[in-house]
Simulated scan of single mutants.
Amino acid sequence: MQMYMFGLITAFLVTIATVPMVMAFARKWGFVDKPDHRKVHKGNMPRIGGVAIMFGMAAGVAVLWSQLGEAQNEMGFLIAGAVILAIVGLIDDRFALGAKTKLIGQTVAAICAASSGLRIEFIQIPFIGNVEFGFLSFIVTIIWILAVINSVNLIDGLDGLAAGVTMIAVLTMLIMATGHPLAYASVIVLSLSLLGSTSGFLLYNFYPAKIFMGDTGSMFLGYAMAVISMMGLFKSVTMFSLIVPLLILAVPFIDTTFAVIRRTLNQQSIGTADKGHLHHCLLAMGYGHRKTVLIIYGISMLFGAVAVLFSQTANWVSLVLLVVILCGIMLFAEGIGLIGQKRKPLLKALGKMQLVKKLE
C-alpha cells in the first residue's frame, strides 16, 4: 500500500512541477487556443497540458514498475501507442489537423496497443451469454480504443471537465480492481498513476483554467482509459462485463452518440464542431461555468456508483431502472440542445420570409 501511495504522489507532484514549464513552452512556440464563436474562454490559452499529464503518469508508472508483473511485456507497445498520440496531438494543437488525419494517427496508436496482446476477446451480454470475437478481436479492440479516445476528446469543452470526468471513471475502475489486487495489479498501477497526474493537472485546469490539456491531453486520457478498461473490466467474466465499462464511460459515450445524431440530422460532417454538447446545453439553460462542470461530475459519479453496484450485486432490475433514470437526465439535456440546434435554421428561414414580406 505504501508503494502504491508513493506512485500516486509521485505522479501528482511531477505533474504539478511540469505544468508551469509546459505553459511557458506553449506560449513561446504558439501552442495556444484562440477564442472563437463556439468557445467559452477569452484570450489565448496555452493548450498542451496533456504533456504534463503524460510526464506525471510516466513518473508514477516508473516508480511502480515492479508491481506490473507480466503486464511489463505489454508496456512497450502501449507506450509506443501513447507516443504516437502525443505526436499527433502536438501537431494538431499547433496546426489544427483535419479529422481524417487525426483518425489515422489514432488508428495507428490503437493498432500498437492491440499488437501488445491486450485484446477484447469476448463480451458477456445479459440473457445471451458470452459472445466470442475470435479473429475479429483485433478489430474490436481497435474500435473500442478509438471510441473511448474520441468520446473524451469531444467532451473536453469546459475548464476541468474532461480531467474531472476521467478521474471519476478511473477511480471507479480502481475501486473495482482493489477487490482483486493480485489479479489486477497492472490496473491498480496505471489507475493510480493516471489519477495522480490528472488530479495534479486539474489544479491548473479547473475553472478559471490557466492551461488547457488540448487534443494532446484528451486523446491520451481516452487512450489510457481504454487500455485500463481492457486490462481489467473486459478480462473479468461477470454478468455485466459489457454494461460495466459502458456505464463508467456513460457521460462521454452518450454525449458523443448525440453529437453524431445531431450532426447527421443537420446534414453536417460528424467531425464538424458545434455548440450542442451536454455542457453547452447546460450553459444555455442558465447554469454557470463552474456549476455546469460540477453537475456533469455528479452525473458521472452516479454512473460510476451504479457500475460498481452492477459488478457486485445480482439485483439488477432496480439497477437497470436507475440507469434508465440517469440516461433520461442526460438525454433530456442533450435533447434540449438537439432541438435548439434544429430550431436555429428554421428561425433564420422564418426571419428571412418576414423580411421579404416587409420589402414587398
Results as ranks from 00 to 15, higher is better:
residue 248 I to A: 02
residue 162 A to F: 12
residue 280 H to W: 11
residue 160 G to K: 04
residue 219 M to T: 11
residue 197 S to T: 09
residue 112 C to S: 11
residue 248 I to V: 15
residue 314 A to R: 11
residue 103 L to I: 10
residue 337 G to E: 01
residue 56 G to S: 03
residue 268 Q to G: 07
residue 64 L to Q: 13
residue 305 A to T: 04
residue 135 F to T: 14
residue 11 A to M: 04
residue 171 L to W: 07
residue 66 S to T: 09
residue 141 T to Y: 14
residue 322 L to G: 00
residue 180 H to L: 05
residue 183 A to N: 07
residue 60 G to Y: 03
residue 295 I to W: 12
residue 126 P to C: 08
residue 316 W to G: 09
residue 236 S to Y: 07
residue 119 R to Y: 13
residue 14 V to Q: 01
residue 207 Y to G: 00
residue 108 V to L: 15
residue 312 Q to W: 08
residue 233 L to C: 06
residue 239 M to D: 11
residue 20 P to Y: 09
residue 21 M to Y: 14
residue 88 V to A: 04
residue 172 T to N: 05
residue 15 T to K: 11
residue 263 R to N: 09
residue 87 I to E: 08
residue 216 T to Y: 07
residue 286 G to A: 08
residue 360 E to T: 04
residue 157 G to N: 06
residue 104 I to S: 00
residue 228 I to T: 02
residue 301 M to R: 02
residue 348 K to Y: 12
residue 65 W to F: 15
residue 102 K to N: 01
residue 319 L to S: 03
residue 191 S to K: 05
residue 214 G to H: 07
residue 204 Y to M: 09
residue 195 L to T: 03
residue 360 E to M: 12
residue 182 L to I: 13
residue 38 R to V: 03
residue 203 L to M: 14
residue 256 T to C: 06
residue 57 M to N: 11
residue 45 M to Y: 04
residue 170 V to G: 00
residue 144 W to H: 03
residue 321 L to G: 08
residue 168 I to M: 09
residue 82 A to Q: 05
residue 110 A to D: 10
residue 128 I to H: 10
residue 190 L to Q: 00
residue 218 S to Y: 06
residue 83 V to G: 00
residue 36 D to P: 00
residue 173 M to F: 01
residue 241 S to K: 06
residue 80 A to G: 06
residue 4 Y to S: 04
residue 35 P to S: 07
residue 284 A to V: 00
residue 29 W to M: 01
residue 26 A to Y: 10
